[in-house]
Protein backbone atom coordinates (compact mmCIF):
# COMPACT_ATOMS: atom_id res chain seq x y z
CA UNK A 1 0.00 0.00 0.00
CA UNK A 2 2.78 2.40 0.86
CA UNK A 3 4.48 1.92 -2.47
CA UNK A 4 1.24 2.81 -4.25
CA UNK A 5 1.12 6.09 -2.37
CA UNK A 6 4.54 7.01 -3.74
CA UNK A 7 3.15 6.71 -7.25
CA UNK A 8 0.38 9.12 -6.29
CA UNK A 9 2.84 11.73 -5.03
CA UNK A 10 3.63 13.36 -8.42
CA UNK A 11 -0.08 13.75 -9.13
CA UNK A 12 -0.65 15.31 -5.72
CA UNK A 13 2.19 17.78 -6.18
CA UNK A 14 0.90 18.76 -9.59
CA UNK A 15 -2.58 19.21 -8.12
CA UNK A 16 -1.26 21.72 -5.62
CA UNK A 17 0.56 23.53 -8.41
CA UNK A 18 -2.55 23.59 -10.59
CA UNK A 19 -4.58 25.18 -7.79
CA UNK A 20 -1.95 27.91 -7.50
CA UNK A 21 -2.04 28.44 -11.25
CA UNK A 22 -5.81 28.75 -11.11
CA UNK A 23 -5.62 31.32 -8.33
CA UNK A 24 -2.84 33.08 -10.23
CA UNK A 25 -5.11 33.42 -13.22
CA UNK A 26 -7.60 35.42 -11.24
CA UNK A 27 -4.96 37.95 -10.26
CA UNK A 28 -4.66 40.98 -12.45
CA UNK A 29 -1.04 41.19 -13.67
CA UNK A 30 -1.56 44.93 -14.10
CA UNK A 31 -1.73 45.44 -10.36
CA UNK A 32 1.94 45.83 -9.74
CA UNK A 33 2.77 48.01 -6.79
CA UNK A 34 4.95 50.87 -7.85
CA UNK A 35 7.91 51.46 -5.58
CA UNK A 36 7.48 55.13 -6.41
CA UNK A 37 4.06 55.64 -4.82
CA UNK A 38 4.24 58.46 -2.27
CA UNK A 39 7.84 59.14 -3.27
CA UNK A 40 9.00 62.35 -4.94
CA UNK A 41 8.95 62.19 -8.75
CA UNK A 42 12.41 61.51 -10.19
CA UNK A 43 14.55 64.48 -11.20
CA UNK A 44 14.51 65.06 -14.95
CA UNK A 45 14.45 67.68 -17.69
CA UNK A 46 12.81 66.67 -20.94
CA UNK A 47 13.18 68.63 -24.18
CA UNK A 48 10.14 69.22 -26.40
CA UNK A 49 9.59 66.93 -29.39
CA UNK A 50 12.06 68.08 -32.05
CA UNK A 51 10.30 70.10 -34.72
CA UNK A 52 7.18 70.66 -32.61
CA UNK A 53 5.80 73.97 -31.35
CA UNK A 54 5.20 73.22 -27.66
CA UNK A 55 7.69 73.21 -24.79
CA UNK A 56 9.12 70.30 -22.82
CA UNK A 57 8.70 69.85 -19.07
CA UNK A 58 10.74 68.97 -16.02
CA UNK A 59 10.44 68.05 -12.35
CA UNK A 60 10.07 71.75 -11.49
CA UNK A 61 6.75 71.86 -13.40
CA UNK A 62 5.37 69.16 -11.12
CA UNK A 63 6.19 71.07 -7.90
CA UNK A 64 4.18 74.20 -8.54
CA UNK A 65 1.66 73.48 -5.81
CA UNK A 66 -1.01 71.97 -8.06
CA UNK A 67 -1.98 68.41 -8.77
CA UNK A 68 -0.79 67.25 -12.18
CA UNK A 69 -1.09 64.20 -14.42
CA UNK A 70 1.79 62.61 -16.34
CA UNK A 71 0.78 60.34 -19.20
CA UNK A 72 3.38 58.08 -20.84
CA UNK A 73 2.60 57.48 -24.53
CA UNK A 74 4.22 56.59 -27.85
CA UNK A 75 3.03 56.66 -31.44
CA UNK A 76 4.00 52.99 -31.87
CA UNK A 77 1.77 51.91 -29.00
CA UNK A 78 -1.66 50.76 -30.07
CA UNK A 79 -3.43 50.94 -26.66
CA UNK A 80 -2.29 54.59 -26.45
CA UNK A 81 -4.41 55.29 -29.51
CA UNK A 82 -7.39 53.82 -27.72
CA UNK A 83 -6.94 55.86 -24.56
CA UNK A 84 -5.99 59.15 -26.22
CA UNK A 85 -9.55 60.56 -26.48
CA UNK A 86 -9.88 60.10 -22.70
CA UNK A 87 -6.60 61.96 -22.11
CA UNK A 88 -7.80 64.80 -24.34
CA UNK A 89 -11.10 64.83 -22.47
CA UNK A 90 -9.33 65.09 -19.11
CA UNK A 91 -7.11 67.89 -20.44
CA UNK A 92 -10.17 69.64 -21.90
CA UNK A 93 -11.82 69.80 -18.45
CA UNK A 94 -9.10 72.24 -17.46
CA UNK A 95 -8.88 70.99 -13.88
CA UNK A 96 -5.29 69.71 -14.01
CA UNK A 97 -2.29 70.16 -16.27
CA UNK A 98 -1.71 66.95 -18.24
CA UNK A 99 1.89 66.35 -19.24
CA UNK A 100 2.82 63.89 -21.97
CA UNK A 101 5.94 61.78 -21.69
CA UNK A 102 6.68 60.67 -25.25
CA UNK A 103 8.48 57.38 -24.65
CA UNK A 104 11.13 56.04 -27.08
CA UNK A 105 9.54 57.61 -30.11
CA UNK A 106 10.68 59.12 -33.40
CA UNK A 107 9.93 62.92 -33.32
CA UNK A 108 8.26 63.10 -36.73
CA UNK A 109 6.01 60.13 -36.00
CA UNK A 110 5.08 61.47 -32.58
CA UNK A 111 4.14 64.84 -34.12
CA UNK A 112 2.12 63.21 -36.89
CA UNK A 113 0.33 61.11 -34.28
CA UNK A 114 -0.53 64.14 -32.13
CA UNK A 115 -1.68 66.06 -35.20
CA UNK A 116 -3.98 63.26 -36.22
CA UNK A 117 -5.48 62.49 -32.80
CA UNK A 118 -5.36 65.93 -31.22
CA UNK A 119 -2.81 67.32 -28.76
CA UNK A 120 -4.49 68.26 -25.51
CA UNK A 121 -1.29 68.03 -23.45
CA UNK A 122 -0.14 71.04 -21.43
CA UNK A 123 3.37 70.15 -22.57
CA UNK A 124 5.08 67.12 -24.05
CA UNK A 125 8.59 65.98 -23.19
CA UNK A 126 10.49 63.71 -25.57
CA UNK A 127 12.23 60.78 -23.87
CA UNK A 128 13.93 59.33 -26.94
CA UNK A 129 16.39 57.15 -25.02
CA UNK A 130 13.83 55.93 -22.49
CA UNK A 131 16.11 56.97 -19.60
CA UNK A 132 13.55 59.14 -17.86
CA UNK A 133 10.95 56.41 -18.41
CA UNK A 134 13.20 53.98 -16.56
CA UNK A 135 13.45 56.42 -13.64
CA UNK A 136 9.67 56.55 -13.53
CA UNK A 137 9.52 52.77 -13.50
CA UNK A 138 7.75 52.56 -16.85
CA UNK A 139 7.59 48.99 -18.10
CA UNK A 140 4.75 49.15 -20.56
CA UNK A 141 3.17 52.01 -22.42
CA UNK A 142 0.71 53.59 -21.73
CA UNK A 143 1.01 54.45 -18.06
CA UNK A 144 -0.49 57.36 -16.20
CA UNK A 145 0.75 58.96 -12.98
CA UNK A 146 -0.96 61.45 -10.68
CA UNK A 147 1.48 63.77 -8.93
CA UNK A 148 0.43 65.99 -6.03
CA UNK A 149 1.33 69.65 -5.60
CA UNK A 150 4.59 68.89 -3.83
CA UNK A 151 5.84 66.73 -6.68
CA UNK A 152 5.16 63.37 -5.04
CA UNK A 153 3.76 60.51 -7.13
CA UNK A 154 0.45 59.49 -5.61
CA UNK A 155 -1.03 57.06 -8.10
CA UNK A 156 -0.01 54.95 -11.05
CA UNK A 157 -2.34 53.46 -13.66
CA UNK A 158 -0.82 50.73 -15.85
CA UNK A 159 -2.35 50.24 -19.29
CA UNK A 160 -4.82 52.37 -21.21
CA UNK A 161 -7.43 54.48 -19.46
CA UNK A 162 -10.56 53.26 -21.19
CA UNK A 163 -14.18 52.65 -20.24
CA UNK A 164 -15.08 54.31 -16.97
CA UNK A 165 -11.54 54.29 -15.56
CA UNK A 166 -11.33 58.07 -15.82
CA UNK A 167 -14.56 58.65 -13.87
CA UNK A 168 -14.00 55.83 -11.41
CA UNK A 169 -10.31 56.12 -10.59
CA UNK A 170 -8.59 59.19 -11.92
CA UNK A 171 -11.05 62.03 -11.36
CA UNK A 172 -12.04 61.14 -7.76
CA UNK A 173 -8.38 60.96 -6.77
CA UNK A 174 -7.58 64.28 -8.47
CA UNK A 175 -10.50 65.95 -6.63
CA UNK A 176 -9.46 64.35 -3.39
CA UNK A 177 -5.89 65.63 -3.74
CA UNK A 178 -7.05 69.05 -4.86
CA UNK A 179 -9.28 69.25 -1.81
CA UNK A 180 -6.17 68.98 0.33
CA UNK A 181 -6.63 65.29 0.99
CA UNK A 182 -3.66 63.18 1.84
Amino acid sequence: MRSRLIYLLPLGLFGVLAVYFAVGLTRDPKIIPSALIDKPAPEFVLPPIAGGTGGGFSTADLKRGRVSVVNVFASWCVPCRAEHPQINRLAGMGIVPVYGLNYKDAPEEALAWLNALGDGYTAVGADASGRVGIDWGVYGVPETFIVDGTGRIRFKHVGPIVGDALEREILPLIRHLQGGGR
Binding site: R4, Y7, L8, P10, L11, F14, G15, A18, F21, A22, L25
Partner: peptide, 16 residues
Amino acid sequence: LVLLIIVIGGSLALYA
Protein backbone atom coordinates in the same frame (compact mmCIF):
# COMPACT_ATOMS: atom_id res chain seq x y z
CA LEU B 1 -4.61 25.89 -17.62
CA VAL B 2 -7.22 23.35 -18.66
CA LEU B 3 -4.87 21.92 -21.29
CA LEU B 4 -2.06 21.62 -18.74
CA ILE B 5 -4.36 19.91 -16.25
CA ILE B 6 -5.60 17.42 -18.83
CA VAL B 7 -2.17 16.56 -20.26
CA ILE B 8 -0.01 16.66 -17.13
CA GLY B 9 -2.66 15.74 -14.59
CA GLY B 10 -4.05 13.01 -16.82
CA SER B 11 -0.67 11.42 -17.46
CA LEU B 12 0.33 11.58 -13.79
CA ALA B 13 -2.99 9.99 -12.84
CA LEU B 14 -2.31 7.22 -15.34
CA TYR B 15 1.13 6.88 -13.80
CA ALA B 16 -0.32 6.59 -10.30
